[in-house]
Design a protein around this nucleic acid. Structure first.
Lengths: 339, 339
DNA sequence: CTCACGTTTTGAAACGTTTCAGGTGCATGG
DNA sequence: CCATGCACCTGAAACGTTTCAAAACGTGAG
């Protein structure tokens, strides 16, 4: 309600002085400062960020656009990003595309209009469709959980091929011959890479008569996992081990197995991906491929911030980089055959 | 980069006309419209929301500030809110207070500066501290998952006392005599109410020799649940049933029980709260008190939107209302004694 | 040929800030 | 008493939109 003009009038100073009290208190005399401050308090003046931003030309918020907030993995990324941004006095607004390209595009368009300082993005596909608006408005963006050529942008990811390999190798070493892979939409690079990792692991230690059944589902959530579980049970001869492209799928598969009376891991070993907190608390604690989620978010944010500092006195301009972390296998009961 | 002025110059029209092409295409002649549109395309013009908002005086975004995004319950609320907002062409920005009062206040201050259209809020405590900035700037807010007197604001909540009662009564009816209640910080009204519900249920069916042990933990997450589990195991004689203030705690307790070799539900029955998706997928599927999370978010958003439409031609002004939903008990294995 | 009217278009004000060149007043040194 | 310097403060421009009164332009009737 009350604007800077009102404050200035009541305090009997110019609006420039009020602005100084708010933004550079040290240039104002102590007497004026305290008088203005009490008027601010009295009138309940709250400065208008849109005017501020309009004038300043740049905003003080970053955006994080994730694939699926229902997946705790992305919530952890958000946590890391928020912390890093907070350290720099920036705000983060989190948006959820729910794996839908149209929502992603809508959010990005909105963020471009908002003139956000930068965007952390885990894109639905690699069409780059939605990025148009960002590029147009010159808003920098960093890919999270997806690596891209450094010619295009910075990225922070985890080696999904290695992750797939870790999981598959683990199952092979446990002696499984009939292995299944429950994968999400092959639209997602993450899914394709994990599958590639699986195939590489199998190729590196060939065994006659070994089979790989790939079950592709449309969602990466628990419900899709249950569907996948049902489909697994229909395969004959039934696989003895299954690797799932993420933990939500694995939890769904596990539920389906429990419901069908299939013992885990004795009759069906299960490996998940992400190592979300719930993996350890599952019906049978899940073996999973752990990704450093919070670190992903933090590092991506740091890169983004580094990219948005304007180059002072001839410093070399920003160079994009692609950070790739390594996943780690966490073995739990779901693949541990009991004596 | 390119502003409305550039578009106007290149297209050879006034900026007013460009604005009309963007916002009220029908008032512009077809020829001009298409010419301007192609210039917009060519220059990659993206309109600046801060200028727009400055001029319009109101923004097109709502904010949702939740207690803990790590809790899928709140993610579901967010989903509901986003859908409802989307229907009205509004954006939602989601913020996470992580149950920390300082973060909550910081976020609210930021939202006030942003002149957000309205705020959906699940507050950390009922001090109302952080609301100061909102009230000052006349930004309407609706409480989610917390009921408040209608004199203050709208609210949408679930009857937590009833929920506590449902859970406790269920345990009493199953014949448990030594009951424990793992509660979160009593700062949270939700926690206090659930405890009250428990006590009411016990009072309504008194039984000699029955005990209630209350274990209070500082967080409402899985790790706190594990701590609580350890503390439960130290109680002697050990309780035979435990009700947890939310599912994350229950999952933690369950993990602790499994780790200690205590059979669930035979030696320890467990009831959770919220019925998050993972409750059904737990080591032992959890009995839980279900809350209609997405509906909570949707209804709250609808109330907020209703509150922000400016009263046309003398319509009666907005009346705050308090919507209270009823929880529902979902019984699963964690309280079902096997034959 | 003029008038009235409807359709398009224009030009300028306004939104609430920040910034910065300059102004004021005061103290100090000559 | 003047010049200089310093600390503090003022006033106005600028940011990119939207809006709206008024101007311009056509068109058809009288």
């Amino acid at each position: 309600m009350a604007g800077i003009k009102d404050v200035a009038r009541v305090a009997g100073v110019s609006i420039g002085t009020v602005s100084n009290v708010v933004n550079r208190p040290h240039v104002v005399s102590a007497a004026t400062r305290s008088r203005v401050q009490s008027v601010i308090e009295e009138l309940g003046y709250v400065r208008d960020e849109s005017a501020r931003q309009l004038r300043a030309g740049r905003s003080r918020t970053l955006a994080l656009l994730v694939l699926d907030l229902g997946n705790p993995f992305f919530v952890d990324i958000a946590r890391g990003a928020e912390e890093a941004a907070y350290d720099e006095g920036l705000n983060v607004i989190t948006c959820n595309s729910g794996q839908r390209g149209d929502r992603e595009a809508a959010h990005l368009a909105m963020l471009a209009e908002q003139r956000v300082r930068g965007v952390l993005l885990s894109p639905v596909d690699n069409s780059g469709r939605g990025l148009k608006d960002l590029r147009r408005s010159g808003i920098p963006y960093v890919f999270v959980d997806r690596s891209v050529p450094t010619a295009e942008a910075c990225s922070v990811s985890v080696d999904d091929v290695a992750g797939g390999t870790l999981a598959a190798r683990h199952l092979v070493e446990a002696g499984h011959r009939r292995i299944a892979f429950v994968n999400g939409p092959s639209l997602l690079v993450q899914c394709r890479d994990r599958e590639r990792g699986v195939r590489e692991a199998l190729a590196e230690a060939p065994a006659p008569g070994r089979t790989l059944s790939v079950v592709e589902v449309s969602g990466l959530d628990v419900a899709s996992g249950r569907d996948a579980g049902a489909r697994l049970l229909g395969i004959s001869p039934r696989p003895t081990a299954v690797f799932c492209a993420n933990d939500l799928l694995a939890l769904g598969v596990l539920q389906a197995m429990v419901a069908a009376g299939v013992r885990v891991p004795d009759e069906m070993a299960i490996v998940g991906y992400d190592d979300i907190e719930f993996a350890a608390a599952a019906a049978v604690p899940l073996t999973s491929v752990r990704q450093p989620a919070a670190r992903l978010g933090r590092t991506a944010t740091e890169l983004l911030i580094a990219e948005t500092v304007e180059p002072e006195n001839g410093l070399p301009s920003h160079e994009h980089q692609a950070v790739v972390y390594s996943p780690e296998l966490v073995v739990r009961d779901s693949t541990r055959v009991r004596r």
